[in-house]
Simulated scan of single mutants.
Amino acid sequence: MNKTTNTNNCPVTATMALIGGRWKTIILYVLSSNTRRFGEIAARIPGISRKVLTEQLKELEADGLVNRQQYNEIPPRVEYSLTELGKTMTPILKDLATWGKKNLPVVKRPI
């Protein structure tokens, strides 16, 4: 039987549209353990440029996965955390990390 897949109704496609790409899953993983400032996130993801990190955080915020809290202080302080929807990704992210530790050569990087 020849069956075509309608990707518009595919839940995996919909999920990957939100978290796909090189950096979003890693950003979510970094935020899964704690609220973090921009510099902390950047330090934990050495390969990402500040421009790309800013863009990815804005997209994750627009998609309702990340919360951006700006404090009116001098100097200004901004913190990022997972929203309630974003927190529902935590078990999946932890499973990915566990799988990676078991099945891939480990590269020592702070995350």
Rank of each mutant, 00 (worst) to 15 (best):
M1C: 01
N2D: 09
K3Q: 12
T4L: 14
T4G: 02
T5F: 10
N9L: 13
C10H: 13
C10P: 00
V12G: 00
T15F: 08
T15N: 04
G20Y: 07
G21Y: 04
G21D: 01
W23P: 00
T25N: 04
I26G: 02
I27M: 02
L31S: 02
S32I: 09
T35G: 00
T35D: 08
G39D: 09
G39I: 02
E40V: 02
E40Q: 15
A42I: 11
A43Q: 13
G47R: 10
R50Q: 15
R50L: 12
T54A: 13
E55Q: 15
Q56V: 04
Q56T: 09
K58M: 11
K58V: 07
L60N: 04
E61A: 10
D63I: 05
G64F: 13
L65K: 02
L65H: 06
V66H: 07
Q69R: 12
N72W: 13
I74V: 13
P75Q: 14
P76D: 11
P76I: 14
R77E: 11
Y80D: 04
Y80S: 03
L82D: 01
L82M: 03
L82A: 01
G86N: 05
P91W: 15
I92K: 04
K94F: 13
L96E: 09
A97P: 00
T98I: 13
T98D: 14
K101R: 10
K101S: 05
N103T: 13
N103A: 10
P105H: 04
